[in-house]
Design a protein around this nucleic acid. Sequence first.
DNA 1: CCGAAAAAATGAACGCACTCATTTTCGTCA
DNA 2: TGACGAAAATGAGTGCGTTCATTTTTTCGG
Lengths: 223, 223
Amino acid sequence: MAAHPKPRSAKRKRVDSAQNGEGRRERNKREKRGRIVAAARGLFQKQGYANTTVQQISKGAKIAAGTLFLYAKSKEDLLILVFTDEMMELIESAYLEIDPDLPFIEQVSALFKRFIAYHARDVDIARELIREITFLSNRDRASDLVAITQAILEKLVAFADRAVERRELDPGIDGAVLADCLFSIYYQQLQRWLSGYTTRRQFERNLAAMLALLIDSSRYRKR
Amino acid sequence: MAAHPKPRSAKRKRVDSAQNGEGRRERNKREKRGRIVAAARGLFQKQGYANTTVQQISKGAKIAAGTLFLYAKSKEDLLILVFTDEMMELIESAYLEIDPDLPFIEQVSALFKRFIAYHARDVDIARELIREITFLSNRDRASDLVAITQAILEKLVAFADRAVERRELDPGIDGAVLADCLFSIYYQQLQRWLSGYTTRRQFERNLAAMLALLIDSSRYRKR
DNA sequence: CCGAAAAAATGAACGCACTCATTTTCGTCA
DNA sequence: TGACGAAAATGAGTGCGTTCATTTTTTCGG
């Protein structure tokens, strides 16, 4: 590479930012976003979602109250800002940990169990988070959340495809529709648990029974 | 019946109220409750849930703002107050309208179609209502909402039982679990529609496919 | 390096859901 | 009938989420 003499001061900054594709503006925004996410997550966890005020969060992130609303459109929307990345990672890591040789129903159960364990760490937050994910208040996040759902469905379809190959599932079954069914059942029962309609124990029992019904009847049948 | 001389004035009131088991206090509360429900429903419908203030509702019901919170614990809780009765009636009337000789899947579809048509009258209100039903804010209403869910599940179980008798469904299937599955799928897709993730068309298509998958595989099988 | 325009941040002010100390209404019993 | 305690209603007050007119920071062409 040809070596240029080290550029100076003002000029330098411009070159640097051009190089890594990030100007002052973008870096500031990213840092601020990070501080907001950290402050919000910490406060939500320490004192609960309802008891945390946006004033506290903005103070914790060292920004003005109004600034916070440039990063999230509402207090509820903050939940999405804080937890989307974590949920995407959860989906991927949970999937990778599952033994691909397990029976279909056990793979599905294992995936959901990981999700349940994640939410169980803080049921109150999970409740608010799932509530906001389900009844989205900020349309701008729709694509992110569709991506999450899509990621989960993909994993379920992958399980189903492998199960069909193993002759465990009926090949006449549409994997995508089956995945939709499985996820709907999981998600619905999750909501009931988080909202206090059922205990975690009941939740897991019900879920197991429902998955068994659905999957048993999708089993491979000799022609 | 022995005729008593017509009692007079003050005394009369006491006797009357004792007879129909309703004192001034109870009557006042019932009337007030009715005015609140009427005012809230009207305003929600005319200008939407979010655009309606509790001040407007209390003015419409001719009571003080604070009084409203003796009847509903929050603005969201008002939705439950306003719509529970209507929903119970909907469930019963929808059930009665369904031809008991139809195939199982068509009975189930018909029930859900009635629910969908009901919510389609005002999607914004339905969204808020389902949101509040799902993530209940007032524990005191839990029993009412469990009753609603239970009522729906009962109908589904009734369909399933008849289908088993007709040899349409596998008798090995647990009707209650099947009903849970069916309702979970319906409810989950309902939420996606009301939240704007899918159109009504997509909703109905998806639902049909999912119900078909679940029910087809629960069909009667010769031993 | 300057100046102007765009983008981002600010924080005081606002609207609204909800509370609570006080007042009013109602049932009961002498 | 009147008086007393309990239940119900009141509405001004409070706290919090959200907005917006103004200020500050960043970009970029000349």
